[in-house]
């Protein structure tokens, strides 16, 4: 059987809110090492890769590997019934066709359970090579959210260029043009308020803002986001979820017109 208990149930709620617009369905692959998900959007332009470690849960047990096919809008409906302070336990028998979610209030005086019907999903896993990136930028996740939201109101695509001067986001549209530059800034005392640019070589790539804006739905999960860029390769937008694991979004670049 599979059983995973997380005291901060809100994390699970935020996670599913971050994914459900982007991917309709996907398999929760559970094993003794934790829970993983790899799912592409319907146009195969971007991919969500989620990895939650077994030791990040208060309790984790998985007797045999399983792929649990999840419809994310449906999972979201159930998780909306959980309180923000609730502890959430996920449970499934081996080869089950349903996932049980149990919600316990913090003072244990309210316990509810819901069964989510599982789906059978054929999904091919993509092999994502480990690689060195030309530029890795860590910035406050709220800053990333603001930039992509602001630029989405101006244009459809953004040119992201990383140089030793900083990281620059540029767009243009019917309204006009917009440029936002963040400089390497380690002055703030709190690490989560710093902008750290680790540059091996300058790089500039163009991406669809609609997807970058969608990735920002993960902002409530983490104070810091990391962008990884390499010439002619997908961007990685990564949120570390405390000690539990990470969610990474990959987006293929646009070829310059």
């Amino acid at each position: 059987m599979f059983e995973a208990r997380i005291t901060q149930g809100a994390v699970l709620k935020k996670l599913v809110e971050a994914l459900k617009e982007l991917v309709t369905e996907g398999n929760f692959d559970v094993s003794s090492t934790g829970l993983q998900l790899q799912a592409m959007d319907s146009s195969h332009v971007c991919l969500v890769s989620l990895a939650l470690r077994e030791d990040g849960f208060e309790h984790f047990r998985c007797d045999r590997n399983m792929a649990m096919g999840i419809h994310f809008q449906n999972l979201s409906k159930i998780l909306k019934c959980a309180g923000n302070e609730d502890t959430i336990t996920l449970k499934a028998e081996d080869n089950a066709d349903q996932l049980t979610l149990m919600f316990e209030s913090s003072n244990q005086d309210r316990i509810s359970d819901f069964d989510l019907k599982l789906m059978s999903i054929e999904s091919e896993h993509l092999g994502i090579p480990d690689q060195e990136y030309s530029a890795e930028i860590k910035m406050p996740s709220s800053e990333y959210q603001r930039i992509v939201r602001d630029l989405t109101s101006i244009g459809d695509t953004v040119l992201i260029s990383a140089t030793k001067e900083g990281i620059k986001f540029s767009t243009s549209g019917d309204v006009g043009t917009a440029n936002v530059t963040l400089r390497h800034n380690t002055t703030p005392e709190k690490p989560e308020e710093q902008t750290i640019i680790d540059l091996k070589e300058p790089v500039a790539l163009t991406f669809a803002l609609r997807y970058l804006n969608n990735f920002a739905k993960a902002t409530p999960l983490a104070p810091v986001v990391k962008l990884s860029l390499t010439k002619d390769l997908p961007i990685v937008v990564e949120y570390q979820i405390g000690e539990l694991g990470a969610v990474k979004f990959y987006l293929a670049p646009k070829i310059d017109d």
Partner: peptide
């Protein structure tokens, strides 16, 4: 979007 590439052009099946 014109010029939008697919992820499958970069990452093969695992």
């Amino acid at each position: 979007l014109p010029g939008q590439q697919r992820l499958t052009s970069f990452f093969g099946a695992a």
